[in-house]
């Protein structure tokens, strides 16, 4: 029993430290965002790094998911004569769940890892200390540009993934399921609503924070040399991914409640 208790208390302590640390970092981001100088150039650099350079990954992933789902839905529903429902099912699934969740998971893997390892290396080589010693703020110079870039680019990437995913579905629908492309397109347009789109789009802002803030936190908390950079990178990706997947349930619930209200 004691053997189990020790790792559990260590795990619990780490979780509490993480919640507290991320909370404080987020507070500092909000506080410093509106104070003093704003680094537009750094934000635009990060938008390029995070957004533009993730485009191929997002397009390939979204296209593949759309195609696979269309095939699976089509072949599954064909037995019950429900092949015609593929466009509607696919569109709603992509807009509400698959688009935002898969795009965010891909970004967590690519960008979360990049942020944590880059900041971690800067800590190890004392560049973060140098930023402070030169009278500037690492929150302003490092964290805020990355958080803002994620907040700006992820919703855009999600929108793109939604389009590409549905396009993938349409291609398989037309070529493999023998559905008329015009019918497919019409069905998407007529059956998916703006609420479907906004539900997924709205989630993407939360997912952006789930990626950027923990990744910056783990990077900034690297202490004992380069070995810890790798550990921080792994922690950043795992934590961001868990937050996205678990957070998705609660956000979906929240958005449903919100939709019912209006």
């Amino acid at each position: 029993m004691n053997n189990l208790a020790l790792p559990f208390t260590v795990f619990l302590k780490e979780i509490l430290l993480f919640i507290g640390g991320v909370g404080l970092l987020f507070r500092d981001v909000v506080r410093e965002l509106f104070k003093g100088r704003f680094y537009w150039r750094l934000v635009s650099e990060q938008i390029y790094q995070i957004g533009m350079r993730s485009l191929p990954l997002i397009v390939i992933t979204a296209m593949s998911i759309g195609m696979v789902m269309s095939l699976q839905f089509g072949l599954g529903l064909e037995k019950f004569g429900g092949k015609l429902y593929v466009p509607k099912l696919l569109a709603v699934t992509i807009l509400r769940e698959m688009g935002p969740v898969f795009t965010s998971l891909m970004l967590a893997a690519r960008v979360g890892a990049g942020i944590a390892s880059e900041i971690g290396s800067m800590v190890v080589t004392q560049q973060v200390d140098a930023i402070r010693a030169l009278g500037t703020s690492p929150i302003k110079k490092i964290v805020i540009p990355r958080v803002l870039a994620c907040l700006i680019t992820l919703p855009m990437l999600v929108t793109l993934a939604n389009i590409v995913g549905n396009l993938g579905g349409l291609i398989v629908g037309a070529l493999e399921l023998n559905l008329d492309p015009n019918f497919y397109l019409l069905k998407i347009m007529s059956t998916s609503s703006i609420q479907d789109y906004l539900s997924g789009f709205g989630k993407s802002f939360f997912f952006a924070l789930f990626i950027a803030v923990p990744s910056c936190y783990f990077g900034l908390n690297v202490k004992n040399g380069t070995k810890e950079v790798g550990i921080a990178t792994t922690k950043a990706v795992v934590t961001s991914s868990i937050l996205i997947v678990v957070g998705d349930f609660f956000l979906s619930k929240l958005f449903w409640i919100f939709e019912k209200m209006i």
């Binding site: 080589t125 004392q126 560049q127 200390d129 140098a130 402070r132 010693a133 030169l134 009278g135």
Partner: peptide
């Protein structure tokens, strides 16, 4: 920090 400069061991260059 404008008055007191710190010269890091490895330079700590960006």
């Amino acid at each position: 920090r404008k008055k007191v400069a710190y010269a890091f061991q490895g330079g700590a260059l960006f």
